[in-house]
Design a protein around this nucleic acid. Structure first.
Lengths: 238, 238
DNA sequence: TGGTGGATCAGTAGGATGTGCATATTGTTA
DNA sequence: TAACAATATGCACATCCTACTGATCCACCA
């Protein structure tokens, strides 16, 4: 859930400064001063954003960025020393998403990082919405007997009355409702609701299922909506 | 319905860079490096926006823009190399709608393009509305109980009394009011009210929401109009 | 009846929001 | 243009809310 940032710079002092300040902002930070290692780390760790100095020993920042571009959509913020590099950086040739000319203030860097990550989140949201719409759920309202999910308002109604839901509960229920009748394994649920990078116990799902049952089942002890499928997962019935 | 953009620049590399990035944004792109050809293409293809470099062989960008102005209302974004050209560009003499000094970031260019196209669409909408008024008098007044937003006069009334609003507040409230009942994420709000290239903290939204509440809520501490939806954003109720 | 998987519970660290103030930015006026 | 005013943004702290963990108890099935 925490954004991971890869910092690529061979100047140790700058590298440390960046890492320190980014960590202070609550990001996970990976660092390296080597271009090839950067590529490797990007592939394996899948950071949410990459900060890349143009000047690197061996394979330079331009080249690293070019290669990254072909493999992933991770946003890249380039650090340039000379103004005349800017054109190449943001242009077709290299394709960075943003740049900062040295010297820059940490404040500005943080601002850009935040903005870039925000943009990515926005895009993801839009895609989700689109997918949800494509999934022939033309209506944003899911109806099941005395249960209604209004995705536009992000509200859940039981017996015509609004029931307050915690964010995770809401997302979990929504996921269930969109896969009515299918058995969903805990792994699948964790991946789709919690995210692919969730680290933790799959018991977590159980707990949330329990909360859900409290709210949407007439008799939570004998669930009829969220059925336990022993050894497999859960199945949501209308 | 996709916007068509004509790029006029004789530097092939820049031309390609522009085309690549604009296409990535989903625009249809036409290119040429010649002033006369640009005029021809503008007449025939009727692009929605023209990006025009000042420096062109033969008939220069200034001249092209002047001629275009007499024939069509298509917005023109000029690219200038020297700062001292700016005055002429946007002034009466040439009449471009906006300009960018080289070097510029692709990010900034895209931002301007979007802004310009948005403006055009807005104007078109306004004309449509005006035309519609003859027949159906489409309301530009949003009414919610003791809150009234008069978009024509750009005024907000609470309990029949005009309340002064800061520009951003007004825009934010308007955006909310036009999406009554929908949950709007901070990301979405920033993009639509602040602009997609906003650099900064998403807490900014919180602060503005707070100011709004001070003005339009009976009890700002227990808001009934602008509801926070934890983990998701805000929702405006009538 | 033993073993495996599921349900339950409650404490706690961390996350999200509200709020006041400091600072930056923009616009205006003399 | 300088000084000022209005507005916007950043920051830090207080507060409230959630999600996750880990232990323990329970139900089902061989």
């Amino acid at each position: 859930m925490v954004d991971k940032i890869l910092v690529v710079d061979d100047e140790i002092s700058l590298q440390e400064t960046l890492a320190y300040n980014l960590k202070k902002q609550g990001y996970d930070v990976l660092t390296t001063g080597d271009g090839n290692e950067a590529l490797e780390m990007a592939r394996e760790q899948k950071p949410n954003l990459i900060i890349l100095d143009v000047m690197l020993p061996g394979i330079d920042g331009f080249e690293v960025c070019r290669i990254l571009r072909k493999e992933m959509a991770t946003p890249v913020l380039m650090l340039t020393a000379r103004d005349d590099e800017i054109d190449r950086v943001v242009g077709l040739e290299v394709g960075a998403d943003d740049y900062l000319s040295k010297p820059f203030s940490m404040r500005e860097l943080i601002a850009r990082v935040k903005a870039m990550l925000r943009r990515v989140r926005l895009i993801r949201e839009e895609i989700d919405q689109q997918e949800a719409q494509d999934g022939k759920r033309k209506s944003e309202i899911l109806d099941f007997d005395n249960l209604r999910i209004d995705m536009t308002r992000r509200e859940i109604l039981v017996d015509e009355k609004v029931v307050p839901f915690k964010p995770k509960e809401y997302e979990l229920l929504t996921f269930f409702a969109q896969h009515q009748g299918q058995v969903l394994s805990r792994e699948m649920i964790l991946e789709r609701v919690w995210g692919w990078d969730f680290i933790g116990d799959s018991r977590t799902v159980d707990v949330h299922v329990r909360w859900l049952r409290e709210k949407i089942e007439r008799d939570p002890a004998n669930p009829r909506r969220i059925i336990t499928v022993r050894g497999a997962g859960y199945r949501f019935e209308g």
